[in-house]
Design a protein around this nucleic acid. Structure first.
Length: 316
DNA sequence: AAAATTCACAACCGCCGGCCC
DNA sequence: TGGGCCGGCGGTTGTGAATTT
């Protein structure tokens, strides 16, 4: 097994990414999609190794990332999944759309581990510390009541995916909610119409995003690139809120069936696709730690991007 | 107010398995 | 079949912000 040539090269940049680098990488991926990561730096004009580019895209620039704090539901889900899967962060991340394995790993190491210890639970075995023989940390006095994630799982000998996915289902209910009055949907001809009433649209049924666009290939968390691309688009295009569907969101079958039924109930218009609020992407742009990816950073113009999307995603 | 410490998280490192030639 | 390349993954480190002393 040879080492990555990129790792042995000396002149490549390391450390935090600058806004300029982000811009280059972002624009490159948006324009050309993801092909061979090792060739991305050269093509995008970056002095980084392909691996670094891949990581930056997956963990930070990807438009379908959910930003902000973990919700209580996500927290519970991570703890439950960790009990079953251990440190298999990528598999855990696959159950949390919009979250990366790195993000979950960091959250676990910096926060959840501590929380569990304070509750007298061994974060490795998920058993009471008294049982495992480990030193139990004295719980600090807390002002806020502590939510016990195990309350609903204690009775289960093993992890129950149906039960856990109920949380996810709730999230999807939120995602697949009917559009609000001031929201817009995108028509097949790329025009926009506001929503007079709660009609669902579902591009996911009509559009089969081809693998050849290359973008989905690198996503290891099962989430769909097109899921929030519209949110990202709307950020670029203005304030129009586009809702897109991720028709391939991976759900365990029991919940998927329920989800499909739910979708059907809400979707009398199967040729059109649900739209997601742009809030998440907007907030991620503004809460970026190492940089502020304002819309102005990126040179994809409104018309250009619409064209890109038409070309890349509408062709099959 | 400044220094020290803690925390959160972005990024890197190195191993592994799959694929291709 | 074996070597080289690549992407995926989990562990670890580095860095800047926040908090404490």
């Amino acid at each position: 097994m040879g080492r990555h040539p990129c790792c042995t090269k000396q002149k490549l940049r390391k450390g935090l990414w600058s806004p300029e680098e982000d811009e280059k990488l972002y624009n490159h991926i948006i324009r050309f999609g993801i092909g061979c990561w090792s060739s991305v730096p050269k093509q995008a004009g970056l002095e980084r190794c392909g691996k670094s580019c891949r990581l930056r895209w997956i963990n930070y620039l990807r438009p379908d990332l959910k930003r902000g704090n973990f919700t209580q539901q996500e927290e519970d889900l991570i703890i439950s999944l960790h009990e079953v899967l251990g440190n298999r962060w990528s598999q855990i991340a696959a159950q949390l759309p919009g979250r990366t394995d790195n993000e979950i790993k960091n959250f676990w190491n910096s926060s959840l581990k501590k929380k569990l210890k304070q509750r007298g639970i061994d974060p490795i075995t998920h058993k009471p510390l008294s049982e495992t023989g480990a030193q139990e940390e004295k719980p600090k006095p807390c002002v806020k009541p502590i939510f016990n994630p195990f309350a609903s799982f204690e009775y289960q000998a093993a992890f129950n995916p149906v039960e856990t996915n109920a949380n996810l289902f709730h999230q999807f209910q939120q995602t697949y909610r009917p559009l609000e009055q001031n929201e817009f949907m995108m028509n097949f001809d790329n025009s926009f119409t506001s929503r007079p009433n709660s009609v669902y649209c579902d591009y996911g049924e009509a559009l089969d995003i081809p693998d050849s666009c290359g973008i989905q290939e690198s996503l290891n968390d099962g989430s769909n690139w097109n899921c929030n691309i519209a949110a990202q688009m709307s950020s670029v295009l203005g304030n129009e809120v586009l809702n897109w569907c991720s028709s391939e969101i991976k759900l365990e079958s029991p919940i998927r069936t329920e989800f499909e039924a739910y979708k059907k109930r809400l979707n009398p218009c199967p040729g059109l696709q649900h739209v997601e609020s742009s809030e998440e992407f907007s907030s991620y742009l503004t809460t970026s730690r190492s940089q502020d990816l304002s819309d102005a950073c990126f040179d994809i113009s409104r018309g250009e991007l619409a064209c890109e999307l038409k070309g890349n995603f509408l062709s099959s």
